[in-house]
Design a protein around this nucleic acid. Sequence first.
DNA 1: GCACAAGAGGAGCGCGTGCTCCGTGTAAGG
DNA 2: CCTTACACGGAGCACGCGCTCCTCTTGTGC
Lengths: 227, 227
Amino acid sequence: MAAQEPEDTARRRAPRVDAIRNREAIVEAASAVLAEQGTAVDVREIARRSGVGMGTLYRHFPKKEDLVHTVLRKDFSEWAESARQAAVDAEDPWAALTAFYEQALTGYARHRAIMENFSLTWTVPDLEGLQQLRRVIERLCAGAAGLLRPGVTVDDLLLLLVSLGHAVQITDDCRPQMWNRLLRISLDGLRAEHHEPLPADTAPGTRPPGPDREVRPSGPSHPAAGS
Amino acid sequence: MAAQEPEDTARRRAPRVDAIRNREAIVEAASAVLAEQGTAVDVREIARRSGVGMGTLYRHFPKKEDLVHTVLRKDFSEWAESARQAAVDAEDPWAALTAFYEQALTGYARHRAIMENFSLTWTVPDLEGLQQLRRVIERLCAGAAGLLRPGVTVDDLLLLLVSLGHAVQITDDCRPQMWNRLLRISLDGLRAEHHEPLPADTAPGTRPPGPDREVRPSGPSHPAAGS
DNA sequence: GCACAAGAGGAGCGCGTGCTCCGTGTAAGG
DNA sequence: CCTTACACGGAGCACGCGCTCCTCTTGTGC
């Protein structure tokens, strides 16, 4: 049942050069378009920009999702790597943390598809790019251990990144530097001089199957349904 | 040119009671559905849930946008008011600020359509609900003047709200209390004990028409296009 | 009770979008 | 140069969604 591999090397021709070039063109164009418009973009737009027909595009990527995943894996990796690099170039642990956020939020936070998926990934952690980013943050966390407010977790820093990433996207058009203020404020709130314990995360490691949607801390369960 | 009013009161019949009831049913159902699924929801779903036909729905609201606007104005107002009330019930200015954020993020931040529009409103401030919320924040700002970090603006607090609102939405399913930690961190970063000046907002009041999209502070303009 | 305008309902149209089908083109192998 | 298998392109299909049209129903004024 597992004998369906590429068979002998002689049995299958080498891929044609134009096919390879087209595939690269598709990925490149898709990356740009996904960055600009998010995953809701029309597939025809990607085909047009990469200069290939629909048939060619769907030959290389049978589903739109396949193309999106391929592009996102690459871009997400590049993103995490650029942020990591900015951190290791810094002089001290706190500067590393700051540089990490600045780099992460400066370049790729404008990549709409990345931020979309980054938000999604919170409930469906299937994207391995997240693990990559997680490891970077873990190292930063360990490095700045004494400088960080007690109780701060990797998830806190990750959520802060998603949160600020969203702020970047919505303010970028008219207030391109505004997110920087929020970053400063948040980073200062993360300093060790703040001793008050943070409220407990209800599910620090596991996913609670309990009836969480029934009882709310306050306010209506669905705001307008009960008025 | 303005003589197209309802004319004389005798000229037009009073609206039928079933029409009024249906309109209310539509708004109520739409509010619940928009809260759950956002503005991308199918109009048929709203019609089905309110127990009316498509014709009836479109008789009351000629465009989907009209219905969405009507519902959003109502829900947004209720949201702002509930958050305001939580603030005035507090004992001191800082507690008021905290209570405001807690209330704002607890109930309505799960209203998908509200948060969608709240993000959009940053670039297109046509929603008067925003002004309502702005005024609440202005009063909180004035009340907590001495306790707030110097240089913090109403826009900062507003952006923080949007930002945390997004965090609530993406973590609500699996980590229903996690946003609270981020709120604490951010609020502590807002305290007056932090003296470092915040980076300037490039366009504090006006919209800069300059070529902002061409030159980026760092990183590629569109991350993957130049690799 | 009657006449009728206002209202209700839902099948269906137009359009956008993911995806396919098939005739044509063209790089590899001899 | 010829063959052939792989690749290319884009017209077209299926489906979902916003919105309309037309027929039947029902509340209202007399």
